[in-house]
Design a protein around this nucleic acid. Structure first.
Lengths: 149, 149
DNA sequence: GGAATTTAGTTTCAATTGCAACCATTTTAG
DNA sequence: CTAAAATGGTTGCAATTGAAACTAAATTCC
């Protein structure tokens, strides 16, 4: 047992495997969106959330996208400049902006969602429905384990 | 079914969940290594592989660390400058360097491995042994699905 | 044997990111 | 009511990263 304790087989190390898997998937999706629509991962996360919850504020996006406020600020600025997102000053709280998709943003959003779902299906293509449920439940347990790391 | 097709619930979207999970885990580990030993994720991956396979070349590291050669170059340069890594010119091929840990690097390596394993155990703490096997086999299947994405 | 190609690794420059400081507004507390 | 603290969001600067170009050595192919 001596050997096993002080070596580490990187390709069996779960954090490493998660990282490689996650990066492969994210990069593939990002490549597709980037090429077709000029969207980064950050931008498309923001679009996904604003599309689903119109009139969110930037602060509300931080929790729903797992991005920090600097990243939100930059992503929203770029999306606005690309014409995909509109900001409207909030009169109740003049620090806030209410964010929503423009016409064009909506159109992109409608195209993006099926592509995203397609990637997810591709990822799960070899899993039977029960296995997909199982995988998601294991994910859920991992997520709750690390939630306050 | 109309609604479900054109919205996307980000927090249920597997690529997003993988990304958040992986980043949380990696950042926690990186924080620990960074604080104690001045190691980035890249540096510690390199150390892990060089520790296990002494006298690797940089090119050999690229496949074993899932890092590109620029990242390897920078990580090895920094590790050398920190005194953790030695490069030795290879006489058979003068473009190559044979990489190995210094005394000090070995010492750090021996401290690092248990910490890494500890994080992995913590991640898997709520899983029974059979569940851990199951999780790894599901991971394996996801990995082979995306291997050529 | 020598020109053309490939491979190992580094460097450069631009783009991205992370952190702290910042401004403006709103909320809290005395 | 006002000073202090907290919140929403942006900016500036340094560090990190990515892509392409580069040097040097090795290999291929005629």
């Amino acid at each position: 047992m001596l050997e096993e304790d002080h070596i580490l087989i990187l390709e069996d190390f779960l954090p490493y495997r998660l990282s490689v898997l996650s990066n492969t998937v994210s990069n593939a999706i990002a490549e597709s969106y980037g090429r077709e629509f000029g969207l980064s991962i950050a931008s498309w996360r923001v679009m996904a959330v604003v599309g689903r919850f119109p009139n969110s504020s930037a602060a509300q996006l931080t929790s729903k996208t797992a991005m920090d406020k600097v990243a939100i600020s930059r992503a929203t600025a770029k999306l606005e400049q690309q014409g995909y997102l509109q900001r409207q000053a909030d009169n109740d709280d003049k620090r806030r902006f209410s964010l929503s998709l423009s016409q064009e943003g909506q159109a992109i959003y409608q195209k993006i969602i099926p592509i995203a779902k397609h990637y997810e299906s591709r990822l799960l293509q070899d899993f039977a429905p029960e296995e997909q449920v199982l995988l998601k439940s294991l994910m859920q347990r991992l997520e709750s384990t690390v939630v306050d790391w």
